[in-house]
């Protein structure tokens, strides 16, 4: 099991991180513009105490929130050629990658973790929006394949949490090819008879939405998340009119039949556990308890 790294205790990491943040920090809510004391915001899972706006979560907090006791193990992802096209715009892609790696301490925009949720073994692949907008290139595709294969090997459900603007332009056609690639990955989970659940978070757009993200057995969205294919600005420029209120938000997708549930952050863990149990533990024993063998 050399490819499994040791268990990470995110609560410890969170403690370390806190030291870097001054206590008197206030953060402005992008929803209502109110200034919120950061401790209050963190205590409320980064949901605005005034308007209920769900601010973005780091992958660490996200995973800490979902796994039992906030505990999980990460798997190391194999490295591929990070710059297949030797892409250069105003800056080399290679440099952009290094900057993002230095900034986030991560190799790329996806983290694959496993642990238990409500006692059930679960694999989660979470996007890291801070890494080049969570954009999907070959490394993210690799991460999704690794996550799917881990789920199949452990006979565990797969939960993917996109937070991504879409394909990584700097990988050109290779990023487009991650659409079929990621779809094959999640199909492997489905074919093994295991649940594939997508937790759509802000934002899920472009090539990410038009591939694995829209193919969950169950699609759960966080309130107010932007989810859609084309960017709002592109649509406005095409149709030359104002977009409707709430367009491409989770609630709009729910209304249009594109997601199953919109669930506030505070209820996410219990909702996902309930769904996993309903799918994975179809019969309770005579005492109404879950038979032991289930996990």
């Amino acid at each position: 099991m050399s490819w499994l790294t040791n268990f990470v205790r995110p609560k410890l990491q969170a403690l370390v991180r806190k030291n870097n943040v001054p206590d008197n920090l206030w953060e402005k809510c992008p929803g209502c513009g109110q200034m919120i004391f950061h401790r209050e915001l963190e205590a409320n899972l980064r949901v605005c105490t005034q308007c209920g706006h769900h601010l973005r979560l780091t992958w660490q907090k996200r995973l800490g929130l979902l796994f039992d006791d906030g505990a999980f193990g990460r798997i190391e992802l194999a490295r591929t050629d990070p710059d297949p096209l030797k892409f250069r715009d105003r800056k080399r892609y290679g440099e952009r990658l290094k900057e993002s790696q230095a900034k986030t301490g991560e190799q790329d925009a996806i983290v694959v973790a496993h642990g238990t949720m409500g006692g059930l073994k679960t694999v989660i692949a979470a996007f890291n929006f801070d890494f080049m907008g969570g954009s999907m290139g070959a490394a993210v595709g690799d991460g999704l394949i690794a996550a799917a294969r881990l789920a199949v090997a452990e006979k565990a459900p797969l939960i993917v949490i996109p937070a991504s603007g879409g394909a990584r332009m700097q990988e050109g056609i290779i990023s487009l090819m991650q659409m079929p690639r990621s779809i094959i990955a999640v199909d492997e989970v489905k074919e093994a008879g295991l649940p594939y659940i997508v937790l759509l978070s802000d934002p899920t757009t472009g090539g990410v939405s038009a591939s694995f993200a829209m193919l969950g057995d169950i699609a759960v969205a966080e309130p107010g998340a932007v989810i859609g294919f084309a960017g709002a600005r592109v649509i406005e420029e095409t149709i030359r009119e104002k977009l409707p209120e709430g367009f491409q938000r989770s609630e709009y997708l729910l209304e249009h039949g594109m997601v199953d549930l919109v669930v506030p952050r505070a209820e996410l863990r219990e909702t996902l556990i309930r769904i996993l149990r309903l799918l994975r533990q179809p019969r309770l024993d005579a005492t109404g308890l879950v038979p032991y063998q289930a996990v």
């Binding site: 038009a210 989810i227 859609g228 294919f229 084309a230 592109v234 977009l243 249009h256």
Partner: peptide, 20 residues
């Protein structure tokens, strides 16, 4: 793919994903 309000409302992303 067509970038329009109607296309998004009817699930452009899902339609493309399902087609692939």
């Amino acid at each position: 793919a067509y970038p329009g309000v109607d296309a998004e409302a009817r699930g452009q992303a899902e339609a493309i994903a399902r087609s692939i």
